[in-house]
Nucleic acid binder design. Structure first.
Lengths: 205, 205
DNA sequence: CTAAAAATGGACCCGCAAGTCCAGAAAATG
DNA sequence: CATTTTCTGGACTTGCGGGTCCATTTTTAG
């Protein structure tokens, strides 16, 4: 079934995925044809189908996975150590920066939008990405609660969900308007709401 | 240029738009062909091009406009009179309800994602929808500020932007996971944050 | 009632892009 | 080495779907 890949083969396969990702970022999923990918990655039609027997759909899914991986790694190390107010602000800046750079191209969003209907696998990619992202946030909130910087009464997971929603929405608005203001507002107000929570029952003194 | 429409013609045109919207909701933009629309609306190819000389793109744009209109009207009358705490909660419920009903089909999102690259018009539709939506929220926040229920120091427009982002993100997560929790969390925490704002500079006695 | 304009039906064209196929080169294997 | 497997090139097929065209019917207008 799955033919063993030689080093060369694995390299080619990877080259195709990355080239496809670039092409999709540059021109959009719907506008990208296998021939475009073929041209950019200096491969032949038979290679594409050799490494992705499921055709375009399988290739797009691989690209989606690739892009999903980048989303979180681009937020590291900040996302992994949300253990101080400072760390939260650093993370915020990393997120804003990442999406400022990315601009209006959202490969993953359009990819999944494109694939969701067809493949259950694509939906899983998004689902896992979101879950992992949210977990990181929840862990961060809990850490702050342990340090007494956020009220222990707050539902960490629910707060993380809301914050994540704000980010997603900010990004999606960025896609359609080109403006970062919503993303920034969502992050700023979201984090402020978290950190403004009285740590302990107002231990003033 | 634009041929005058008879009553019959206008009706047909409208039928096509609504049928196309249904088809797209049911099967997704990319999967929907002119022939599907033709079949569902009991029209002929020539009619499609008669009423939408610009072809599929023009038709999709019309559908996008149609769907955009529904987004806000579905939130009325609540969205237009956010002048009490009660009203805010009613609006919240209306939003959640609307998207619960819509489920994982987001015609507008996929439509604009599909069109944005091509037409500047599609981007304008989204932009205007978001702007109008946010304005309603801002007006509501200001109203609450006037009534002394929200601190006058709060930046109403920025808060509205954050809330809107949360909704957008909640919806987009709903699309990819089928779960309403994020939308609810974003709305609940967002509104709570607004209404929890001390009305006046803590006039405690 | 009649001429013009609009509405409709549906056959047809055409290009594009996904997918197939086979033959030949390169690499692994023993 | 030999031979088996993997990798590569590229011509070819094919179907689908957007778009065109024209003939016919229906409606409007004077």
């Amino acid at each position: 079934m799955t033919p063993r890949l030689t080093a060369k083969g694995a390299a080619t396969r990877q080259r195709v995925i990355e080239g496809a990702a670039q092409e999709i970022r540059a021109r959009g999923v719907t506008e990208t044809t296998l021939d475009d990918i073929r041209a950019r990655t200096a491969t032949s039609k038979s290679q594409l189908f050799h490494y992705f027997p499921g055709g375009k759909e399988e290739l797009l899914l691989a690209v989606a996975r690739h892009e999903a991986g980048r989303v979180l790694s681009d937020q590291q190390p900040h996302l992994g150590e949300l253990t101080s107010r400072r760390a939260w602000y650093n993370w915020r800046d990393a997120v804003v920066d990442r999406y400022r750079r990315q601009g209006q191209q959202c490969p993953l969003g359009t990819l999944t939008a494109q694939l969701t209907r067809a493949t259950p696998g694509a939906q899983a990619v998004t689902r896992e990405l979101l879950a992992s992202w949210q977990t990181h946030l929840t862990v961060g909130i809990r850490a702050m609660q342990d340090r007494g910087e956020i009220s222990p009464g707050l539902d960490a997971d629910r707060a993380a969900a809301a914050l994540l929603a704000g980010i997603q929405g900010g990004v999606s608005i960025l896609m359609s308007t080109g403006s970062l203001t919503h993303l920034e507002a969502a992050l700023d107000l979201g984090i402020d709401a978290l950190l403004a929570t009285p740590a302990r029952p107002t231990p003033t003194g």
